[in-house]
Protein backbone atom coordinates (compact mmCIF):
# COMPACT_ATOMS: atom_id res chain seq x y z
CA UNK A 1 0.00 0.00 0.00
CA UNK A 2 1.44 3.32 -1.04
CA UNK A 3 0.25 5.98 1.33
CA UNK A 4 2.87 8.57 0.58
CA UNK A 5 1.98 12.17 -0.06
CA UNK A 6 2.89 11.65 -3.73
CA UNK A 7 0.38 8.85 -4.15
CA UNK A 8 -2.28 11.10 -2.64
CA UNK A 9 -1.33 13.85 -5.09
CA UNK A 10 -1.55 11.37 -7.97
CA UNK A 11 -4.98 10.24 -6.75
CA UNK A 12 -6.07 13.89 -6.53
CA UNK A 13 -5.02 14.55 -10.12
CA UNK A 14 -6.73 11.35 -11.22
CA UNK A 15 -9.95 12.63 -9.61
CA UNK A 16 -9.51 16.00 -11.36
CA UNK A 17 -9.12 14.23 -14.71
CA UNK A 18 -12.23 12.14 -14.07
CA UNK A 19 -14.17 15.24 -13.00
CA UNK A 20 -13.14 17.02 -16.21
CA UNK A 21 -14.17 13.94 -18.20
CA UNK A 22 -17.61 13.94 -16.53
CA UNK A 23 -18.03 17.60 -17.44
CA UNK A 24 -17.06 17.09 -21.09
CA UNK A 25 -19.34 14.08 -21.45
CA UNK A 26 -22.30 15.87 -19.90
CA UNK A 27 -22.09 19.33 -21.47
CA UNK A 28 -25.79 19.91 -22.09
CA UNK A 29 -26.84 19.21 -18.51
CA UNK A 30 -23.84 21.15 -17.21
CA UNK A 31 -25.06 24.12 -19.26
CA UNK A 32 -28.54 23.75 -17.75
CA UNK A 33 -27.15 23.58 -14.21
CA UNK A 34 -24.85 26.56 -14.73
CA UNK A 35 -27.83 28.49 -16.12
CA UNK A 36 -29.96 27.74 -13.06
CA UNK A 37 -27.19 28.76 -10.66
CA UNK A 38 -26.59 31.86 -12.76
CA UNK A 39 -30.30 32.81 -12.76
CA UNK A 40 -30.65 32.11 -9.03
CA UNK A 41 -27.62 34.18 -8.07
CA UNK A 42 -28.67 37.00 -10.40
CA UNK A 43 -32.10 37.24 -8.81
CA UNK A 44 -30.68 36.99 -5.30
CA UNK A 45 -27.92 39.50 -6.18
CA UNK A 46 -30.43 41.95 -7.64
CA UNK A 47 -32.60 41.77 -4.53
CA UNK A 48 -29.60 42.18 -2.23
CA UNK A 49 -28.40 45.19 -4.28
CA UNK A 50 -31.83 46.81 -4.05
CA UNK A 51 -31.93 46.11 -0.34
CA UNK A 52 -28.46 47.63 0.21
CA UNK A 53 -29.43 50.73 -1.75
CA UNK A 54 -32.73 51.05 0.08
CA UNK A 55 -30.75 51.33 3.29
CA UNK A 56 -28.45 53.97 1.78
CA UNK A 57 -31.42 55.99 0.55
CA UNK A 58 -33.12 55.70 3.96
CA UNK A 59 -29.90 56.80 5.70
CA UNK A 60 -29.66 59.70 3.25
CA UNK A 61 -33.15 60.90 4.15
CA UNK A 62 -32.71 60.21 7.84
CA UNK A 63 -29.91 62.78 7.83
CA UNK A 64 -32.36 65.38 6.53
CA UNK A 65 -34.89 67.39 8.52
CA UNK A 66 -38.23 65.61 8.61
CA UNK A 67 -40.22 68.41 6.95
CA UNK A 68 -39.09 71.14 4.57
CA UNK A 69 -41.46 74.02 3.88
CA UNK A 70 -40.63 75.99 0.73
CA UNK A 71 -42.31 79.40 0.50
CA UNK A 72 -43.37 81.15 -2.67
CA UNK A 73 -40.87 83.64 -4.06
CA UNK A 74 -42.89 86.68 -2.95
CA UNK A 75 -42.73 85.67 0.73
CA UNK A 76 -40.16 87.79 2.49
CA UNK A 77 -37.56 86.63 5.01
CA UNK A 78 -39.39 88.56 7.77
CA UNK A 79 -42.67 86.83 6.99
CA UNK A 80 -40.91 83.48 7.02
CA UNK A 81 -39.17 84.26 10.33
CA UNK A 82 -42.59 85.13 11.78
CA UNK A 83 -43.83 81.68 10.78
CA UNK A 84 -40.68 80.23 12.38
CA UNK A 85 -41.50 81.99 15.65
CA UNK A 86 -45.04 80.69 15.57
CA UNK A 87 -43.98 77.10 14.89
CA UNK A 88 -41.18 77.18 17.49
CA UNK A 89 -43.76 77.99 20.16
CA UNK A 90 -45.59 74.72 19.43
CA UNK A 91 -44.54 72.01 21.97
CA UNK A 92 -44.95 69.29 19.30
CA UNK A 93 -42.16 70.82 17.25
CA UNK A 94 -38.62 70.11 18.34
CA UNK A 95 -36.67 72.41 16.07
CA UNK A 96 -37.27 74.93 13.29
CA UNK A 97 -34.40 76.14 11.09
CA UNK A 98 -34.61 79.10 8.74
CA UNK A 99 -33.02 78.77 5.27
CA UNK A 100 -32.43 82.03 3.50
CA UNK A 101 -33.04 82.59 -0.22
CA UNK A 102 -29.26 82.85 -0.63
CA UNK A 103 -28.70 79.41 0.93
CA UNK A 104 -31.44 77.87 -1.23
CA UNK A 105 -29.91 79.41 -4.34
CA UNK A 106 -26.50 78.06 -3.33
CA UNK A 107 -28.02 74.59 -2.80
CA UNK A 108 -29.63 74.62 -6.25
CA UNK A 109 -26.41 75.83 -7.83
CA UNK A 110 -24.48 72.97 -6.22
CA UNK A 111 -27.03 70.46 -7.48
CA UNK A 112 -26.69 71.78 -11.02
CA UNK A 113 -22.90 71.80 -10.72
CA UNK A 114 -22.97 68.20 -9.55
CA UNK A 115 -24.94 67.35 -12.69
CA UNK A 116 -22.42 69.27 -14.81
CA UNK A 117 -24.88 72.07 -15.62
CA UNK A 118 -23.47 74.71 -13.28
CA UNK A 119 -22.70 77.16 -16.10
CA UNK A 120 -26.20 76.83 -17.46
CA UNK A 121 -27.78 77.79 -14.13
CA UNK A 122 -25.28 80.56 -13.29
CA UNK A 123 -27.17 83.05 -15.44
CA UNK A 124 -30.36 82.58 -13.45
CA UNK A 125 -29.05 83.27 -9.93
CA UNK A 126 -30.46 86.79 -9.96
CA UNK A 127 -33.88 85.70 -11.15
CA UNK A 128 -36.31 86.71 -8.40
CA UNK A 129 -38.74 83.96 -9.38
CA UNK A 130 -36.14 81.40 -8.33
CA UNK A 131 -35.33 82.99 -4.98
CA UNK A 132 -37.35 81.64 -2.10
CA UNK A 133 -36.99 81.05 1.64
CA UNK A 134 -37.60 77.76 3.48
CA UNK A 135 -38.03 76.29 6.94
CA UNK A 136 -36.74 72.90 8.06
CA UNK A 137 -38.86 71.40 10.81
CA UNK A 138 -38.19 68.47 13.13
CA UNK A 139 -41.31 67.11 14.77
CA UNK A 140 -41.51 65.12 17.96
CA UNK A 141 -42.82 61.58 17.78
CA UNK A 142 -46.41 62.50 18.73
CA UNK A 143 -47.15 64.21 15.42
CA UNK A 144 -47.30 62.47 12.07
CA UNK A 145 -45.68 64.07 9.05
CA UNK A 146 -48.94 63.87 7.08
CA UNK A 147 -50.92 65.73 9.78
CA UNK A 148 -48.34 68.48 9.95
CA UNK A 149 -48.19 68.74 6.16
CA UNK A 150 -51.96 69.29 6.03
CA UNK A 151 -51.74 71.84 8.82
CA UNK A 152 -49.09 73.86 6.99
CA UNK A 153 -50.99 73.90 3.70
CA UNK A 154 -54.22 74.96 5.43
CA UNK A 155 -52.99 77.41 8.07
CA UNK A 156 -49.85 79.08 6.70
CA UNK A 157 -49.98 81.66 3.93
CA UNK A 158 -47.57 81.66 0.98
CA UNK A 159 -46.49 78.01 1.15
CA UNK A 160 -45.31 76.69 -2.20
CA UNK A 161 -44.48 73.06 -1.27
CA UNK A 162 -43.97 70.83 1.74
CA UNK A 163 -41.60 67.90 1.50
CA UNK A 164 -42.47 65.28 4.04
CA UNK A 165 -39.18 63.35 4.29
CA UNK A 166 -40.49 61.24 7.18
CA UNK A 167 -43.29 60.01 4.90
CA UNK A 168 -40.78 59.07 2.22
CA UNK A 169 -38.62 57.24 4.79
CA UNK A 170 -41.65 55.32 6.08
CA UNK A 171 -42.55 54.22 2.55
CA UNK A 172 -38.94 53.25 1.87
CA UNK A 173 -38.80 51.26 5.12
CA UNK A 174 -41.88 49.31 4.01
CA UNK A 175 -40.34 48.63 0.59
CA UNK A 176 -37.09 47.58 2.30
CA UNK A 177 -38.92 45.01 4.45
CA UNK A 178 -40.68 43.64 1.36
CA UNK A 179 -37.40 43.45 -0.57
CA UNK A 180 -35.63 41.72 2.33
CA UNK A 181 -38.45 39.20 2.71
CA UNK A 182 -38.34 38.54 -1.04
CA UNK A 183 -34.56 38.09 -0.78
CA UNK A 184 -34.90 35.45 1.94
CA UNK A 185 -37.64 33.63 0.01
CA UNK A 186 -35.57 33.85 -3.19
CA UNK A 187 -32.49 32.47 -1.44
CA UNK A 188 -34.48 29.49 -0.13
CA UNK A 189 -36.46 28.79 -3.31
CA UNK A 190 -33.66 29.32 -5.81
CA UNK A 191 -31.13 27.63 -3.52
CA UNK A 192 -33.32 24.49 -3.42
CA UNK A 193 -33.97 24.69 -7.18
CA UNK A 194 -30.26 24.94 -7.91
CA UNK A 195 -29.40 22.02 -5.64
CA UNK A 196 -32.15 19.95 -7.29
CA UNK A 197 -30.96 20.64 -10.81
CA UNK A 198 -27.26 20.17 -10.13
CA UNK A 199 -28.22 17.04 -8.15
CA UNK A 200 -30.02 15.66 -11.20
CA UNK A 201 -27.16 16.56 -13.52
CA UNK A 202 -24.59 14.80 -11.36
CA UNK A 203 -27.04 11.94 -10.79
CA UNK A 204 -27.11 11.34 -14.56
CA UNK A 205 -23.34 10.97 -14.58
CA UNK A 206 -23.50 8.76 -11.50
CA UNK A 207 -26.16 6.61 -13.16
CA UNK A 208 -24.07 6.27 -16.31
CA UNK A 209 -21.09 5.25 -14.21
CA UNK A 210 -22.87 3.19 -11.53
CA UNK A 211 -21.22 -0.05 -12.63
CA UNK A 212 -17.82 1.59 -12.55
CA UNK A 213 -18.55 2.89 -9.04
CA UNK A 214 -19.59 -0.58 -7.89
CA UNK A 215 -16.39 -2.07 -9.31
CA UNK A 216 -14.35 0.71 -7.70
CA UNK A 217 -15.76 -0.25 -4.31
CA UNK A 218 -14.89 -3.90 -4.80
CA UNK A 219 -11.33 -3.20 -5.78
CA UNK A 220 -10.70 -0.97 -2.78
CA UNK A 221 -11.39 2.60 -3.88
CA UNK A 222 -12.00 4.94 -0.97
CA UNK A 223 -15.22 6.96 -0.77
CA UNK A 224 -13.21 10.13 -1.43
CA UNK A 225 -11.81 8.61 -4.62
CA UNK A 226 -15.29 7.68 -5.83
CA UNK A 227 -17.09 10.84 -4.76
CA UNK A 228 -14.24 13.20 -5.72
CA UNK A 229 -14.93 13.50 -9.48
CA UNK A 230 -18.64 14.16 -8.87
CA UNK A 231 -17.86 16.82 -6.29
CA UNK A 232 -15.43 18.37 -8.77
CA UNK A 233 -18.26 18.41 -11.33
CA UNK A 234 -20.56 20.16 -8.83
CA UNK A 235 -17.75 22.55 -7.86
CA UNK A 236 -17.19 23.46 -11.50
CA UNK A 237 -20.91 24.09 -12.11
CA UNK A 238 -21.13 26.26 -8.98
CA UNK A 239 -17.96 28.20 -9.74
CA UNK A 240 -18.80 28.94 -13.37
CA UNK A 241 -22.41 29.85 -12.49
CA UNK A 242 -21.29 32.21 -9.74
CA UNK A 243 -18.52 33.92 -11.73
CA UNK A 244 -20.83 34.52 -14.73
CA UNK A 245 -23.61 35.87 -12.51
CA UNK A 246 -21.11 38.16 -10.76
CA UNK A 247 -19.93 39.55 -14.11
CA UNK A 248 -23.44 40.09 -15.47
CA UNK A 249 -24.67 41.64 -12.21
CA UNK A 250 -21.71 44.00 -12.24
CA UNK A 251 -22.54 45.11 -15.80
CA UNK A 252 -26.27 45.58 -15.15
CA UNK A 253 -25.67 47.32 -11.83
CA UNK A 254 -23.22 49.76 -13.42
CA UNK A 255 -25.85 50.75 -16.00
CA UNK A 256 -28.50 51.27 -13.29
CA UNK A 257 -26.00 53.18 -11.16
CA UNK A 258 -25.10 55.51 -14.03
CA UNK A 259 -28.77 56.12 -14.75
CA UNK A 260 -29.51 57.16 -11.16
CA UNK A 261 -26.39 59.26 -10.98
CA UNK A 262 -27.69 61.28 -13.95
CA UNK A 263 -31.28 61.42 -12.75
CA UNK A 264 -32.89 62.41 -9.48
CA UNK A 265 -34.87 60.27 -7.11
CA UNK A 266 -37.93 61.84 -5.45
CA UNK A 267 -36.71 65.14 -6.85
CA UNK A 268 -33.50 64.80 -4.91
CA UNK A 269 -30.06 63.57 -5.93
CA UNK A 270 -29.38 60.45 -3.90
CA UNK A 271 -26.03 58.72 -4.05
CA UNK A 272 -26.42 54.96 -4.67
CA UNK A 273 -23.94 52.41 -3.39
CA UNK A 274 -21.17 52.06 -6.01
CA UNK A 275 -20.71 48.44 -7.16
CA UNK A 276 -17.03 48.57 -6.21
CA UNK A 277 -17.93 48.88 -2.53
CA UNK A 278 -20.03 45.69 -2.74
CA UNK A 279 -17.88 43.84 -5.30
CA UNK A 280 -15.70 41.97 -2.79
CA UNK A 281 -18.65 40.71 -0.76
CA UNK A 282 -20.63 39.82 -3.86
CA UNK A 283 -17.78 37.87 -5.43
CA UNK A 284 -17.04 36.06 -2.18
CA UNK A 285 -20.66 35.18 -1.42
CA UNK A 286 -21.49 34.26 -5.00
CA UNK A 287 -18.54 31.91 -5.24
CA UNK A 288 -19.16 30.46 -1.76
CA UNK A 289 -22.89 30.00 -2.47
CA UNK A 290 -22.36 28.65 -5.99
CA UNK A 291 -19.65 26.23 -4.95
CA UNK A 292 -21.58 25.16 -1.83
CA UNK A 293 -24.69 24.50 -3.93
CA UNK A 294 -22.72 22.58 -6.55
CA UNK A 295 -20.66 20.55 -4.09
CA UNK A 296 -23.60 19.66 -1.85
CA UNK A 297 -25.70 18.60 -4.85
CA UNK A 298 -22.79 16.54 -6.21
CA UNK A 299 -22.23 14.83 -2.85
CA UNK A 300 -25.93 14.07 -2.42
CA UNK A 301 -26.17 12.60 -5.91
CA UNK A 302 -23.40 10.06 -5.35
CA UNK A 303 -24.01 9.33 -1.66
CA UNK A 304 -26.25 6.28 -2.13
CA UNK A 305 -23.89 4.70 -4.65
CA UNK A 306 -20.86 4.60 -2.37
CA UNK A 307 -22.65 2.26 0.04
CA UNK A 308 -21.46 -1.06 -1.38
Amino acid sequence: MNNSIFSKIRVFFYMLRQGAKNILQNMFMIFASVSVIFASLMIIGALVSVSANMQTIIDHYNDRPEIRINFKSHVTEDACLAVKEKLSADPCIEEVTFISAEENMQGMLETFEDDGNGDLFAGYTDNEALRFVSLDVDLDSTVSGEEFENYIYNQIEGVDSVRNIAGIVNKLETVKVVVRTCSVIAIIVFGCLSVLLVFNTVKLTVFARRREIEIMKYIGATDVFIVGPFIIEGFFVGLVGSVISYGVLKGVYSLVYEYFMKNTLFGDSVELVPFESMAGSFLLWFVVAGVALGVSAGSLAVKRHVKV
Binding site: N2, S7, K8
Partner: peptide, 27 residues
Protein backbone atom coordinates in the same frame (compact mmCIF):
# COMPACT_ATOMS: atom_id res chain seq x y z
CA UNK B 1 -12.13 -10.43 -6.75
CA UNK B 2 -13.53 -12.07 -9.88
CA UNK B 3 -17.25 -12.24 -10.67
CA UNK B 4 -19.42 -14.41 -12.87
CA UNK B 5 -20.51 -11.40 -14.96
CA UNK B 6 -16.87 -10.20 -15.26
CA UNK B 7 -17.74 -6.67 -14.08
CA UNK B 8 -15.39 -4.93 -16.42
CA UNK B 9 -15.94 -1.42 -17.69
CA UNK B 10 -17.07 -1.54 -21.30
CA UNK B 11 -15.98 2.03 -22.03
CA UNK B 12 -12.38 1.29 -21.05
CA UNK B 13 -9.84 -0.70 -23.03
CA UNK B 14 -8.37 -3.95 -21.75
CA UNK B 15 -5.30 -2.25 -20.29
CA UNK B 16 -7.37 0.62 -18.85
CA UNK B 17 -9.61 -1.88 -17.06
CA UNK B 18 -6.56 -3.37 -15.42
CA UNK B 19 -4.70 -0.13 -14.69
CA UNK B 20 -7.86 1.25 -13.09
CA UNK B 21 -7.26 -1.04 -10.09
CA UNK B 22 -3.83 0.52 -9.59
CA UNK B 23 -4.90 4.11 -10.13
CA UNK B 24 -7.02 4.00 -6.98
CA UNK B 25 -3.88 3.34 -4.97
CA UNK B 26 -2.06 6.35 -6.46
CA UNK B 27 0.62 4.21 -8.06
Amino acid sequence: VVFQDFRIIKSKSVSENVSFAMEITGE
